[in-house]
Amino acid sequence: MAYSDKVMDHFMHPRNVGKIENPDGVGKVGNPVCGDVMAIYIKVKDNIIVDIKFETFGCGAAIATSSMATELVKGKSIEEALKISNTVVAEKLDGLPANKLHCSLLAEQGIKAAIEDYKLRSPNVKAQSSKRE
Protein backbone atom coordinates (compact mmCIF):
# COMPACT_ATOMS: atom_id res chain seq x y z
CA MET A 1 0.00 0.00 0.00
CA ALA A 2 2.63 2.50 -0.99
CA TYR A 3 0.45 5.42 -2.00
CA SER A 4 1.84 8.82 -3.01
CA ASP A 5 1.25 11.86 -0.81
CA LYS A 6 -1.17 13.16 -3.44
CA VAL A 7 -3.23 9.98 -3.28
CA MET A 8 -3.30 10.14 0.51
CA ASP A 9 -4.30 13.80 0.40
CA HIS A 10 -7.23 13.10 -1.93
CA PHE A 11 -8.14 10.00 0.07
CA MET A 12 -8.17 11.80 3.41
CA HIS A 13 -9.66 15.04 2.08
CA PRO A 14 -11.72 14.03 -0.93
CA ARG A 15 -13.07 16.87 -3.07
CA ASN A 16 -16.64 16.98 -4.38
CA VAL A 17 -18.08 14.26 -2.16
CA GLY A 18 -21.82 13.89 -2.07
CA LYS A 19 -24.93 13.98 -4.22
CA ILE A 20 -26.48 16.66 -6.45
CA GLU A 21 -30.21 17.27 -6.14
CA ASN A 22 -31.86 17.12 -9.57
CA PRO A 23 -28.69 16.28 -11.48
CA ASP A 24 -28.50 16.49 -15.28
CA GLY A 25 -26.67 13.19 -15.45
CA VAL A 26 -25.90 10.25 -13.16
CA GLY A 27 -23.33 7.52 -13.74
CA LYS A 28 -23.28 4.42 -11.53
CA VAL A 29 -20.43 2.03 -12.22
CA GLY A 30 -18.63 -0.84 -10.53
CA ASN A 31 -19.90 -3.86 -8.68
CA PRO A 32 -20.17 -4.36 -4.92
CA VAL A 33 -19.06 -7.98 -5.42
CA CYS A 34 -15.75 -6.68 -6.77
CA GLY A 35 -15.38 -4.24 -3.91
CA ASP A 36 -15.83 -0.91 -5.64
CA VAL A 37 -18.88 1.08 -6.65
CA MET A 38 -19.02 4.71 -7.72
CA ALA A 39 -21.84 7.13 -8.37
CA ILE A 40 -21.11 10.37 -10.26
CA TYR A 41 -23.64 13.23 -10.43
CA ILE A 42 -23.23 16.13 -12.87
CA LYS A 43 -24.90 19.45 -13.48
CA VAL A 44 -24.42 20.82 -17.01
CA LYS A 45 -24.98 24.34 -18.29
CA ASP A 46 -24.21 25.45 -21.86
CA ASN A 47 -22.25 22.25 -22.47
CA ILE A 48 -20.06 22.91 -19.42
CA ILE A 49 -19.94 20.65 -16.35
CA VAL A 50 -20.66 23.30 -13.76
CA ASP A 51 -20.95 20.94 -10.82
CA ILE A 52 -19.93 17.37 -10.10
CA LYS A 53 -20.19 15.17 -7.01
CA PHE A 54 -19.29 11.57 -6.27
CA GLU A 55 -20.03 8.77 -3.84
CA THR A 56 -17.59 5.87 -3.71
CA PHE A 57 -17.50 2.54 -1.92
CA GLY A 58 -13.96 1.35 -2.43
CA CYS A 59 -10.32 1.28 -1.45
CA GLY A 60 -7.95 4.22 -1.03
CA ALA A 61 -7.12 4.32 -4.74
CA ALA A 62 -10.78 4.26 -5.75
CA ILE A 63 -11.65 7.17 -3.45
CA ALA A 64 -8.60 9.23 -4.40
CA THR A 65 -9.14 8.76 -8.15
CA SER A 66 -12.83 9.67 -7.76
CA SER A 67 -11.82 12.87 -6.04
CA MET A 68 -9.09 13.78 -8.54
CA ALA A 69 -11.23 12.95 -11.57
CA THR A 70 -14.10 15.15 -10.39
CA GLU A 71 -11.65 17.98 -9.80
CA LEU A 72 -10.25 17.62 -13.33
CA VAL A 73 -13.69 17.56 -14.92
CA LYS A 74 -15.31 20.42 -13.07
CA GLY A 75 -15.64 23.50 -15.28
CA LYS A 76 -14.71 21.58 -18.43
CA SER A 77 -16.85 21.11 -21.54
CA ILE A 78 -18.46 17.74 -22.21
CA GLU A 79 -15.95 17.09 -24.99
CA GLU A 80 -12.98 17.93 -22.79
CA ALA A 81 -14.35 15.81 -19.94
CA LEU A 82 -14.69 12.81 -22.23
CA LYS A 83 -10.99 13.04 -23.05
CA ILE A 84 -9.88 12.59 -19.43
CA SER A 85 -8.61 9.04 -19.17
CA ASN A 86 -7.67 6.98 -16.15
CA THR A 87 -3.98 7.34 -17.00
CA VAL A 88 -4.32 11.13 -16.81
CA VAL A 89 -6.01 10.82 -13.42
CA ALA A 90 -3.29 8.46 -12.17
CA GLU A 91 -0.56 10.81 -13.43
CA LYS A 92 -2.16 13.76 -11.67
CA LEU A 93 -2.03 11.72 -8.46
CA ASP A 94 1.72 11.13 -8.93
CA GLY A 95 1.05 7.55 -9.91
CA LEU A 96 -0.71 4.55 -8.40
CA PRO A 97 0.68 1.17 -7.34
CA ALA A 98 0.56 -1.23 -10.33
CA ASN A 99 -2.10 -3.45 -8.77
CA LYS A 100 -4.30 -0.40 -8.17
CA LEU A 101 -4.37 0.98 -11.70
CA HIS A 102 -7.62 -0.86 -12.42
CA CYS A 103 -9.27 1.13 -9.60
CA SER A 104 -8.64 4.34 -11.55
CA LEU A 105 -10.68 3.01 -14.48
CA LEU A 106 -13.78 3.32 -12.36
CA ALA A 107 -13.55 7.13 -12.20
CA GLU A 108 -13.16 7.39 -15.98
CA GLN A 109 -16.08 5.03 -16.53
CA GLY A 110 -18.19 6.89 -13.96
CA ILE A 111 -17.73 10.23 -15.68
CA LYS A 112 -18.43 8.72 -19.11
CA ALA A 113 -21.56 7.06 -17.78
CA ALA A 114 -22.80 10.33 -16.24
CA ILE A 115 -22.25 12.16 -19.54
CA GLU A 116 -23.98 9.35 -21.42
CA ASP A 117 -26.92 9.67 -19.06
CA TYR A 118 -26.96 13.44 -19.55
CA LYS A 119 -27.07 13.03 -23.32
CA LEU A 120 -29.92 10.53 -23.06
CA ARG A 121 -31.88 12.88 -20.83
CA SER A 122 -31.40 15.82 -23.18
CA PRO A 123 -31.60 14.51 -26.77
CA ASN A 124 -31.57 18.04 -28.19
CA VAL A 125 -28.27 18.76 -26.55
CA LYS A 126 -26.92 15.54 -27.96
CA ALA A 127 -28.00 16.51 -31.47
CA GLN A 128 -26.47 19.94 -31.11
CA SER A 129 -23.18 18.71 -29.78
CA SER A 130 -22.84 16.05 -32.45
CA LYS A 131 -23.59 18.68 -35.11
CA ARG A 132 -20.77 20.74 -33.74
CA GLU A 133 -18.44 17.76 -33.94
Binding site: M1, F11, M12, C34, G60, A62
Partner: peptide, 29 residues
Protein backbone atom coordinates in the same frame (compact mmCIF):
# COMPACT_ATOMS: atom_id res chain seq x y z
CA UNK B 1 -21.27 -0.13 3.41
CA UNK B 2 -17.52 0.50 3.58
CA UNK B 3 -14.46 -1.14 2.09
CA UNK B 4 -11.73 -2.67 4.24
CA UNK B 5 -8.60 -1.11 2.81
CA UNK B 6 -9.95 2.39 3.21
CA UNK B 7 -10.58 1.65 6.90
CA UNK B 8 -7.06 0.18 7.28
CA UNK B 9 -5.48 3.26 5.72
CA UNK B 10 -7.32 5.52 8.13
CA UNK B 11 -6.38 3.33 11.09
CA UNK B 12 -2.78 3.31 9.89
CA UNK B 13 -2.74 7.11 9.95
CA UNK B 14 -3.78 6.83 13.60
CA UNK B 15 -0.89 4.44 14.23
CA UNK B 16 -3.06 1.33 14.41
CA UNK B 17 -2.00 -1.81 12.52
CA UNK B 18 -4.77 -4.27 11.60
CA UNK B 19 -5.78 -6.31 8.55
CA UNK B 20 -8.73 -6.92 6.25
CA UNK B 21 -10.17 -9.65 4.07
CA UNK B 22 -10.96 -7.20 1.28
CA UNK B 23 -9.53 -7.87 -2.16
CA UNK B 24 -7.79 -4.51 -2.22
CA UNK B 25 -6.03 -5.16 1.07
CA UNK B 26 -4.65 -8.48 -0.11
CA UNK B 27 -3.75 -7.43 -3.64
CA UNK B 28 -6.02 -10.05 -5.21
CA UNK B 29 -9.31 -9.49 -7.00
Amino acid sequence: YVEGESMLLNLDLEGIAASSGSACASGSL
